[in-house]
Design a protein around this nucleic acid. Structure first.
Lengths: 221, 221
DNA sequence: GTGCGCGTAGTACCGGGGTACGACGTCACG
DNA sequence: CGTGACGTCGTACCCCGGTACTACGCGCAC
């Protein structure tokens, strides 16, 4: 049984959610909040599995309420459900620790599926947003050893490990940082760096980074 | 009507997909491919709305096939549907330009919803992956409190001359080279560099170069 | 005129980056 | 079984990059 708290300042909206949820035999609405403060205290008291959170609410908006819920270490997962498909809202909400972000024009089944996913520890985002999120994410892809094959021969001559090192150099890491975070001796890092520079024909790490960008080994944010 | 191409090396799997899709009156299977090469040519010929793409295929795997489809500028959106929930696959697939990534243990309705979303220009990822995707994504945000604005602000605070210097640093020039080619004393160059680093919050010129790329002050060759 | 931003320049100093060696264990391959 | 590629680590050394501080001339705004 999934317990759900509904936080929305519009009574009719809450009613709609409640009707939908109570039509499901695996869901139970344990409370309704009309503002952020109320939402906070009800989460505290009932510890629901999921909190359906509107953004625009009196006293305390949904983003800030989410932030405090997460900060308090509550077991409750927050699923933000709002009217407006604004990226900024979604970013803020997700950064605040929300497990999901859906738009109110979603189909009932989508909403239910979203709640179940969030309750199960997964995350959901509105399809319309997924695309943009993905684009942004792909740009930020961290070290993916063995990533896509690069075209440039200079990069191709590098070993797997060397490409990995070059990638983090491209993140702006110093030798010391690389050593720490990759659990290596600094001397080892230096060895790798020297070999990378030799193979790529770079004079220093700056030129190597430029090459990494040019060959799309690393991508601009 | 959404036209779909099925690319999978297992005939039974293709059969299952076909049955599911043909039970929908808004979907039409326009072809089946048993390997990557075949998938490529069928996409070329039929220009389907969506290509359901398996990863493990003979001759050409699904990732590489996806990459070539995208590169060729085809209108077809690729939805990768694979057996294994490996992050690496997903990363590679998404980087290759896929519009979505689903696991074969998804419910039929989920798969259908995924196809419709992708056909409509949205993106989808498997719920189990969404969580990790989001975590990784959000993790990259905190340094950018006000969104992209701050990036530009760091650059914007530079004077004309400083931007000029940063640009050539982004070409890989050393301080000595900058001094020579811009007819400056090296000490002057150093002064500029120090100010640039301070203003941009970079620790060394490598990080400054990265910023320059990220803000498109300099562009990859 | 007084102040200020900017570009220029110098000196002194230090630390990290890069080089040049040498060394060792592992693993794949002929 | 050798042999070579690879990843790892160490030491010693040099020099460029970056910092701190000071200084001067120019143009412009108040």
């Amino acid at each position: 049984m999934t317990t759900v708290l509904i936080a929305d300042d519009q009574p009719m909206q809450r009613f709609g959610f409640r009707m939908l949820l109570e039509s499901q035999d695996d869901m139970n609405v344990v409370g309704e909040a009309g503002n952020g403060v109320e939402a906070l205290s009800l989460v505290q008291r009932h510890q629901p599995d999921v909190a359906l959170m509107d953004i625009r609410m009196p006293l305390l908006d949904g983003i800030e309420a989410t932030r405090r819920i997460i900060k308090a270490g509550a077991r409750t997962r927050v699923l933000i459900v709002t009217t407006f498909d604004l990226d900024q809202y979604a970013y803020d909400g997700l950064r605040a620790g929300a497990s999901g972000f859906l738009i109110k024009d979603a189909l009932p089944e989508e909403l239910l599926a979203g709640i179940r996913a969030v309750a199960g520890g997964d995350a959901v985002v509105a399809p319309s947003l997924t695309r943009r999120l993905l684009d942004a994410y792909v740009q930020h892809l961290p070290t993916v050893p063995g990533g896509p094959a690069t075209l440039d021969a200079r990069i191709a001559s590098l070993t797997e490990r060397e490409r990995e090192i070059l990638t983090v150099i491209g993140q702006g890491w110093s030798n010391t940082e690389i050593a720490e975070r990759l659990h290596l001796a600094e001397s080892t890092v230096k060895t790798h760096v020297t070999r990378i520079l030799a193979k790529t024909g770079s004079r220093d790490r700056v030129q190597a980074v430029i090459l990494a960008y040019d060959t799309h080994l690393v991508t601009p944010a």
